[in-house]
Structure formats: C-alpha cells, structure tokens
Amino acid sequence: MPVHRPGTARREHHAAGVLLAVLSALALLLTLPGAAQSADGENVPPRGSARMGQGVLEHDGQGGEPRGGDAVQTEGVDVSSHQGNVNWSALWSSGVRWAYVKATEATSYRNPYFAQQYNGSYNIGMIRGTYHFATPDTSSGAAQANYFVDNGGAWSRDGKTLPGALDIEWNPYGAACFGKSPSAMVSWIRDFLTTYKARTGRDAVIYTATSWWKQCTGNYSGFGSTNPLWIARYDVSPGELPAGWGFHTMWQYTSSGPIVGDHNKFNGAYDRIQALANG
C-alpha cells in the first residue's frame, strides 16, 4: 500500500487545479473569433481574412518558374490586407504596371488598407482594379455584387480602372464548394455577374483555378464568351483552362512575389490592359 507523505495530497490537488485552468483557457481561446475549428478539428481563419489564391498552394501546389515565350506579357500584382501599406514605387520600379486590390468579402468585410492600396497604385501610374472574395454560403450573388460595388468595386471610364473581379475559389472557412451543388454554384455566380453588370455596365473578370471550377461548377462553359478569365496556377504555364475559355486574360503565377503580393502576368502588352480598362 503506497504511503502519502504530509502535504502530498495538497500539492496533487493544486497541480490538478492548475492543469484544469490551463485546459479551460485553451478551450476558451478556441471559441474566440479567428480561432475557430471545423468539424474535423482543423483551424479555420477569421472571416474576412481570405485572399486571392489562398487555396491554390494547398490544392494545386507550386510548380516551376513561369516560362517566357513569344507573346508579350505585362507584370501585375494583387494585394489585400495581408500586405498592409504597400510600397508602390518599389513595385513600379520592378516593372509592375497593373494591380488588383481586395475591396470586400461577403457583405460584411471591407479591406482596411483599401485607400492606401487603391489610391497608391493609381498615384504611381498603374492601371488598377478591385476584387471581391466570394462566400456563396453566406448571402446571394446579387447581395454580394451590390456590396462590392458600394464599397470600392465600381468602375469608371477613366482609362485607369479595370473592371471588378469575382474571386471564386476554395472556401477557406469550410467545404470547398461552400455547400453548393454545381448547378447552384453556377446560379450564384450568374446572379453576381448579372448584378455587377447592371450596376456598372461592365462584365466582371472571373478569377478561379481550373481544378476548383471543375469540382464546384461541373466545368460549366457558359461564361467564357462574356467574362475575362483570370486563371490561378503556380507553375510554368497557365495549363488547362476551364471550359468555355479559349484563352486567359490574366494569369496568377505565384504567391511569393519578389517584393510584395501575388504576382500575375497580363496576356498582352500594356495597350491591351488599357483597352480592358476603357471597356
């Protein structure tokens, strides 16, 4: 029979109490915003933190450096709150001539660095536009398009403003396809695009990855004749495109740019970017 020395039980009780307090604190932290967990126990980022291409590395991986070619391409970047205040003069000096800035997400988030990023890119001489990170499980496509236009996604024919972009890709907060069937996803996207055009007069750019598009829209081909394609693929070439598009307009080729942000190539010379801006 074990012998308990005086004070042993007290110390054991105190240690158990400390352990219980630590576990309780950890449990509380996991319930706070930004520290949520999915049903399978994986950490979920805070709402609003999603950025363009967030799921590309996880789902499609990173290949080699992009190959050069005979076609002229023009360097661009996309940024969000993750980049904070951007050094636009350094980007301009490196050859970047166009930019997209995250404006909104869902119907509740606005990029707190939007003014510095959007106005800064314009002031340095870049042609710039804005994008909306879609969350089709939280509200309708029309509601999100209206929120986008009202909070930075509008367009003007000033020769320096690109049409807004719909960032539709893997859901960082849950199921990849936001709990929607392919037909329901296509309907949601159409709702967004139709509303955006009604509000601005422009067809929005669609940013996506081919693998996501196949999985979540059933490789729907109906938007290729109207909406410019911004393809995400971190490899030596844009690769296979989603159904309906015979060519891409923009290509996000890396998430680790030499200065800041994701880097992209416009499929054409600078005057073709001007043409897209002018509508």
Rank of each mutant, 00 (worst) to 15 (best):
W98Q: 11
A99N: 03
Y100L: 15
Y100P: 08
V101S: 01
V101I: 12
V101D: 00
V101K: 03
V101M: 01
A103E: 01
T104A: 07
T104S: 05
T104F: 01
E105M: 14
A106H: 07
A106T: 09
A106E: 14
T107S: 10
S108N: 14
Y109H: 12
Y109R: 04
Y109I: 11
R110G: 07
R110E: 13
R110N: 12
N111C: 10
N111M: 12
P112A: 08
P112W: 06
Y113Q: 13
Y113K: 13
Y113R: 12
F114C: 00
A115D: 15
A115L: 14
A115M: 07
A115S: 15
Q116V: 09
Y118F: 15
Y118N: 13
Y118W: 14
Y118S: 13
S121N: 09
S121H: 05
N123I: 01
N123K: 12
G125D: 01
G125T: 05
M126D: 10
M126H: 12
M126R: 08
I127Y: 09
I127D: 11
I127P: 06
R128F: 05
Y131G: 10
Y131P: 04
Y131W: 09
H132L: 02
H132T: 05
H132A: 06
F133I: 11
F133P: 09
A134R: 01
A134P: 02
A134D: 01
A134K: 04
T135D: 11
P136W: 04
T138S: 14
T138L: 15
S139C: 12
S140V: 02
G141Q: 10
G141M: 12
G141S: 14
G141L: 10
A142D: 06
A143M: 03
A143H: 04
A143Q: 11
A143P: 04
A143E: 03
Q144T: 06
Q144H: 01
A145R: 00
A145V: 04
N146W: 00
N146G: 14
Y147M: 12
F148C: 03
F148S: 04
F148G: 00
F148N: 06
V149A: 07
V149C: 06
N151H: 15
N151C: 15
N151Q: 10
N151L: 13
